[in-house]
Design a protein around this nucleic acid. Structure first.
Lengths: 225, 225
DNA sequence: CCAAAAGTGTTGACTGTACACCCATGT
DNA sequence: ACATGGGTGTACAGTCAACACTTTTGG
């Protein structure tokens, strides 16, 4: 390639991961507190250097395991951020992934030596190190549109769930209320979920039917919402 | 980050670019013929090494200028490919962009010392070097869905165009015929284009009205097709 | 006058949206 | 008995999809 000088070794690569989960009707992101400079003490996304013998997706999966105790996440590459000034240490290119995790499969160990991994609602994000705020913003946009034409929501829910839990998950991410009757009609007609014979119990109201996803595989749909 | 060893310098980065244009009702990709090993003599996407002082998008824009003579393209990051065995020379991570270019703004110089840049219809792609076939396939899928909910098609058309040219562009990319009356109704109702006072002439049939896009900025739309 | 592409409306099916009341349970 | 969320149907509006003939030009 005539007009490209030879490869330069000064560029280093990192992988950052945006771990989403929905708790109590809120969309949350997992953040860590940086121990070292730059941005020591500031909240940031978990991540690390890309290893020469590891693909970036595996690297992201490793971060998920170490920081959130999650083993089989939904994970997808989001974007590669490579602005020249994004890291004061020099040219660092970051391949960013986002992951969707059901609340109950999270096993977060907030030990300081693991950088205090903490769930933070996206509606109340603190200042973030580097360009991590841009990354989160972009990931939310992507997640919102992904919800509308795929079945990825199953990655955020436990094996069985009520219609209301499903609807609350959508509402948390789309940040708008949905009509209960229309939501149920729509979802029922998609054929993605089926009723189980189980009902909730112990709540101080009428028990709710539990449903499950028929297959837990990412699928594209025509239209959604 | 306790469980990440220190940065390793052995990873190198490249930028590859998928340049799309529509000619004669066909979607084409610009390919070059590799001069050097590996894959010498094989068709490949144009690209080059990422420079330490240049962001990947500018690198992609430079490729466009050098190989296709294009100055103000629509360009978007597609995906970062980093499989361990994607390049026999070692660990090379490629940030891939795709660009949309109107036929008449292309100035391709097929000189062998510029690696014979050549437009090839996507329906008749030769074997490609590295994982470039995967890249093209993914880019086509992305382009198809992008067409359905954005106005990016303007990047593939000249400043003024007929309704039929617009429709043929959609058909070339979506790879299916569209109904003429429904297409015109739909597009007219979107308010993206306006009639000029000009008509085509010299064709051996009735002249057609020429239209233009009201603004040439990427815009998201509700629904499209 | 023939060939070629331009231009133009209507109908029926389907999909989306708005909206309110009774039910089953725990306290 | 009351409070809480569960569960259900209808009507109207908007959008989508199918479909064919007349017009204008060049040759």
């Amino acid at each position: 390639m005539p007009n490209f000088p030879k490869p330069l070794p000064e560029i280093q690569m990192t992988v950052d991961v945006i771990i989403f989960t929905v708790t109590a009707g809120q969309l949350n992101v997992l953040l860590i507190r940086r121990q070292s400079e730059p941005f020591a003490g500031t909240w940031a996304l978990p991540g690390g250097y890309l290893q020469a013998d590891e693909i970036s997706e595996d690297s992201a999966i490793r971060v998920l395991r170490d920081k959130a105790g999650v083993r089989e996440p939904f994970i997808e590459q989001l974007y590669t951020f490579d602005a020249l000034d994004r890291d004061p240490r020099g040219r660092l290119v970051s391949i960013v992934y986002y992951a969707l995790v059901p609340e109950e499969s999270l096993k977060i160990n907030t030990r300081p030596d693991l950088q205090n991994p903490t769930l933070v609602p996206v509606t109340a994000l603190p200042d973030l190190a580097f360009d991590h705020a841009d990354m989160v913003e972009y990931a939310i946009t992507r997640l919102q549109s992904k919800l509308e034409y795929t079945n990825v929501v199953f990655s955020l829910l436990p094996p069985t769930f009520t219609f209301t839990e499903l609807q609350r998950t959508y509402e948390a991410i789309l940040e708008r209320p949905l009509d209960k009757r229309n939501f149920q009609k729509k979802f029922a007609s998609l054929g993605l979920i089926e009723a189980t014979s189980e009902m909730t119990s112990g709540d101080k109201h009428r028990p709710a039917r539990l449903y499950r996803f028929i297959d837990n595989k990412p699928t594209e749909l025509k239209k959604f919402f």
